[in-house]
C-alpha cells in the first residue's frame, strides 16, 4: 500500500507540522490521513489546503471559531460533500472505500426527530452497514444494539419514540447507534451541544472507554474551557489547520489567538482558559 508516490512524497518531506504525529506508522495503521483538502461552498473556500494525519488510539478535539469548517471537515471525511482538491484516506484506503470502519455521530439537528421510529430502531440502523443488501437484522444484531444502549444508560427507553426524549437522551441514542457500528474511528459533530452536565460527563466516560479499546475518536467541540481537559490532542482549525498536537503543546494563548483571530469575546475566554491551565 505504500507504493503511492504522492503519499510518499508528502510524508518524506519535512512537510506540514500536522503530519508529524504519524511518522513511522504504516498506512493501514493511520486511521485518518488528509492531504491538500479544499472544500468550497459557492466558490468560497471553507477548508483550504488541509493536511492532517492522525495517530491511532487518541481522543482528539477539533476546535475553532464559527464557520471555521469544523463540520465541513467531518462531512468531507465521510465523503458527504464534493471536494475541490485533495484526498482523504482511512486506514490507508480512499475514504469512500473504507467508511465501514467509521462511526458517525451527526449534529442532533440534522435529522427529523418526529420520524416514526423508536430508540431501538435508531440504534439498529447502526447495524445496517454490517448487514449489507437483503439481510435483516438478526438475534446477534439485536443483542449488540441492546448492549450499546446499555452503555449509554438508555435501555429503559428502548421502546420510546425518539421525539419524546430530551436533548441529552437524543444525543445518547446517536452515540449508541455509532457504537453499534463497531467502528475503529469515530467522528462526532458537537456531541455536547445542548446536553446537560450529567450527560456530558457520561459521554466523556464513554469516549475514554472507547479510547482504552484502541479506537480513535475525533470530536468537534465548541467550548474552549472544557476542551483543555477532555482531549489528548487538539486540532486548531480555521479554514486551514492552524496547529495539531498534544493539548498541552497546542492550548496556548498565542496559538488560540491565531485560530480565533480578533474575536474579542472569545479571546477573553481563551485568556481565562489559559490562565486556569497555568494555575
Amino acid at each position: 500500500m505504500t507504493s503511492d508516490p504522492n503519499i510518499e512524497a508528502v510524508r518524506s518531506s519535512s512537510g506540514p507540522l500536522s503530519m508529524r504525529w504519524t511518522q513511522g506508522l504504516s498506512d493501514a495503521e493511520i486511521p485518518l490521513e488528509i492531504h491538500d483538502l479544499t472544500v468550497a461552498y459557492h466558490h468560497k473556500p471553507v477548508l483550504y489546503g488541509v493536511d492532517l494525519a492522525i495517530p491511532p488510539g487518541k481522543l482528539i478535539g477539533v476546535i475553532g471559531p464559527n464557520g471555521a469548517g469544523k463540520s465541513t471537515l467531518i462531512k468531507s471525511i465521510m465523503g458527504l460533500l464534493p471536494t475541490d482538491s485533495g484526498w482523504v484516506r482511512l486506514f490507508g484506503k480512499p475514504n469512500k472505500k473504507n467508511l465501514g470502519r467509521v462511526g458517525y455521530v451527526p449534529q442532533r439537528e440534522s435529522v427529523d426527530w418526529d420520524f416514526p421510529v423508536n430508540v431501538m430502531d435508531v440504534v439498529m440502523m447502526g447495524r445496517y452497514g454490517k448487514l449489507g443488501l437483503f439481510r435483516r437484522p438478526g438475534k446477534k444484531d439485536r443483542s449488540i444494539a441492546a448492549a450499546c444502549l446499555e452503555k449509554v444508560h438508555m435501555m429503559p427507553f428502548a421502546d420510546r419514540q425518539i421525539a419524546n426524549l430530551s436533548g441529552g437522551q437524543q444525543q445518547r441514542v446517536f452515540l449508541a447507534r455509532a457504537l453499534a457500528q463497531e467502528s475503529d474511528l469515530y467522528l462526532m459533530d458537537e456531541p455536547f451541544a445542548g446536553v446537560d452536565a450529567a450527560t456530558e460527563s457520561s459521554i466523556i466516560d464513554l469516549l475514554h472507554t472507547l479510547r482504552k479499546e484502541g479506537k480513535t475518536i475525533l470530536v468537534v467541540h465548541h467550548d474552549l474551557p472544557t476542551a483543555r481537559n477532555y482531549f489528548d490532542m487538539l486540532i486548531l482549525l480555521n479554514m486551514r489547520v492552524v496547529d495539531f498536537g498534544p493539548t498541552k503543546e497546542v492550548f496556548t494563548y498565542e496559538k488560540l489567538q491565531k485560530t480565533y483571530g480578533g474575536r474579542l469575546t472569545i479571546l477573553s475566554e481563551v485568556a481565562d482558559a489559559v490562565r486556569q491551565t497555568k494555575a
Binding site: L80, L99, G100, M125
Partner: peptide, 14 residues
C-alpha cells in the same frame, strides 16, 4: 428507512 432518516449515515454505509 435509513436513507430517509439520515442520508449521511446511509451514504457512509454505501
Amino acid at each position: 428507512l435509513v436513507s430517509s432518516f439520515d442520508p449521511g449515515l446511509a451514504s457512509s454505509m454505501g
